[in-house]
Design a protein around this nucleic acid. Sequence first.
DNA 1: TTGTAATAGTTACTTTTGCAACCAACAAGG
DNA 2: CCTTGTTGGTTGCAAAAGTAACTATTACAA
Lengths: 147, 147
Amino acid sequence: MNSKKHFKLQEFLPYLLNQAAETSSLAFQKTYKDRYGMLRAEWRVLFHLGLYGEMTAVEIGRRAQMHKTKISRAVHKLAERRFITRSRDLKDRRVEHLALTDRGKEAYRDLSKVAESYNAELEARLSDEEVDHLRSALEKLAKPVHG
Amino acid sequence: MNSKKHFKLQEFLPYLLNQAAETSSLAFQKTYKDRYGMLRAEWRVLFHLGLYGEMTAVEIGRRAQMHKTKISRAVHKLAERRFITRSRDLKDRRVEHLALTDRGKEAYRDLSKVAESYNAELEARLSDEEVDHLRSALEKLAKPVHG
DNA sequence: TTGTAATAGTTACTTTTGCAACCAACAAGG
DNA sequence: CCTTGTTGGTTGCAAAAGTAACTATTACAA
């Protein structure tokens, strides 16, 4: 017999969060992979440009908390497949402005619809109140541990 | 102007879940990596054996929803580093029973403590009620979409 | 028996990632 | 101008993950 109550895996938030994140992402992942051959970093870049308009790689990285190498590769592949255009900033020639092409916009709109209805499906498992609580909790947990 | 309200990334549960999962896992990940050179699949196997005792790879896979190749590799590395032992079932020689060695138990206890205090740190960002709500919501979302 | 299918687990191959080093353009101080 | 540091972005290499195909063993039925 244990003298001490054990810490359970089912209580460990990072574990639970990962499980929920993984399984809840599966179906959507399949969609952007099958329809457009995209990876997670790629649809994220696509969505950022679709939602907020033209911006630089650094800015996407800051918003999405993605490392710049991931972005760099995602941008490369998206440009290669003509979902986005890259144009140098004339004042600071290190910088590139990224924007969706028509093809990119179409993909964005399509995936956006899929995401929306898929999200509705997920939310249907919870009450409105639960959804609100969940969002606010996730927001708090998404902040880095120190600071 | 858009005639239609846009679906936002901040409303998309799989996105939020992934963000929260990733950032909330970082610090713990660093611990098991730095102290024991483990990967995620490895500490998960370790914890399953530590919590529930001897079991087979298939059973761990079922409980943790991990693919068998992931488990196979995790088991291989854990055994190589003498955290676990593998013993063939005498009645069904396809099956292997996995169990922690003393070294494995020690690592488990150590990491278990870290996980517990780290979890407390995370939970401190939320009220008790929020934690309960969160757990129940995550549980509902961790179920596969169809069925 | 023998043939077919299921199950436990491993391996081979390809695609992704993670990290560090790197290049190019700018910035600021002397 | 020159040096030093910073920033935007890329690349090379090693580690890790995903997939499917594979071996070995058992189960079951003709």
